[in-house]
Design a protein around this nucleic acid. Sequence first.
DNA 1: TGCCATTTCAAACGGCCGTTTGAAATCTGT
DNA 2: ACAGATTTCAAACGGCCGTTTGAAATGGCA
Lengths: 249, 249
Amino acid sequence: MAVALEPKLDTSAAQTRQALLEAGGAVFAAVGFHNATVREICRQAGANIAAVNYHFGDKEALYREVLAYFQTRAYQKFPLDLGLAPGADAPARLRAFVHAFLLRIFDHSSDAWHGQLIAREMVDPTSALDAIVVERIRPQAQHLARIVAELLGGQPDSELVRLYAFSVVSQCLFYSHCQPVVIRLFPEQEFSPAEIERLADHITRFSLAAFKEVARTRRGQSAAKPLAPKPSASSPRRQPAKPRRARRD
Amino acid sequence: MAVALEPKLDTSAAQTRQALLEAGGAVFAAVGFHNATVREICRQAGANIAAVNYHFGDKEALYREVLAYFQTRAYQKFPLDLGLAPGADAPARLRAFVHAFLLRIFDHSSDAWHGQLIAREMVDPTSALDAIVVERIRPQAQHLARIVAELLGGQPDSELVRLYAFSVVSQCLFYSHCQPVVIRLFPEQEFSPAEIERLADHITRFSLAAFKEVARTRRGQSAAKPLAPKPSASSPRRQPAKPRRARRD
DNA sequence: TGCCATTTCAAACGGCCGTTTGAAATCTGT
DNA sequence: ACAGATTTCAAACGGCCGTTTGAAATGGCA
């Protein structure tokens, strides 16, 4: 992690390294760690097959550096307090948080693979997820928890705040995790910067409205308000199981 | 697809087929389609390596049948109108929708892999996703859209309703897609039936509160209410790029 | 029981994978 | 310009993959 001297940035070796990082981001984002092949990454980077092992050690080490690289870029480009006045109030900070979150996910400018890399890592974790949670996700969760706690009037580490913070981030992550489904359901849907602004507005307004309404009627606490009866334990019926054979026909 | 006669259910061949479906569900859910190996599935099913190709044709055909099998089971066990009175109002139907959704995701009883299979398919689609969207997701989306439209007072196919429906399902899907992260952030979190009830209550209450608040202040429509200034186009700064070499040391 | 279709089995095939190798090319400092 | 370290390169290695094969085992039916 610690680096004493900065590398010569325009060395041929440094260029190869950089090309491998960029190509690795593209390929890992497109097909995931396991499906990605070192051959394809090297091809896209214009490098030899042995380049990954020479410059990074092995495929997994390259993957870790790719994750760190694009993550750092994304958070440098869109920090947690993106475009926020110093003394901004909680609603404004919530809006900034949501907007920056969406921008990090949807930054498809040239080569920004952070969103897709993280989405894959969340659903199909590699050994790199633990570090990501500690270094990025947990601070972000605490940041959001402070905002939500201020809006709800609870403790940042309370279970209530956790539930409401989940409700906020989930609305952002949806567009990252379910993009293939959203595109199939609504092919006309686009994710231009203007559209992302509107999404951020919606999510912020939706959440703030829920916060306000809940803060108003805060007495039933978080106990279960039974709106529907139990599912009556319907047993999973036997399915017909079609008798198709696949061999020689 | 069409099956004329029902197969002999206790045939040795039918048992093998069934065992392959169950084992396939477990393995595909655990590691995804690409990472799953036919050898491991056959091992768990107690079948020979050639069994998959004999009974299903190839690995992908097995995967399609596994998806259909567990999907059918999940929706039979937890239908869209789970435990709902015939003339129930919109809030009750929303609650039932959310609860059934969560139950389908979290049904870890013995061998119910629907949730994990679908989550993987959404983030890393195979050719099977198109059929899933048409047969399952779209009807479900329309079902929810009708509920939301009734609550908001709009058209089920309006953009406003779509946004709000997304906000509801996203809160459910979050626990499916981000389970590895949630577990790492909050190791004490559990997903017992009682906890799922509480989750369903929270999501329903959160969403209904937002609906109510929005329906009350419905005049600014869905235009962008600028809560924060533009990000001032901060260019992605150059990152330090540590100069580590990996070979021979 | 004996025949034949169905199902299982162990073994192998071809292919793609990550990685290694040792030589060739290229840089770096003198 | 030259020696030595660094970087690139084509080729190959071993391993695991999905699938195929042909024979052996099994089951239903006369």
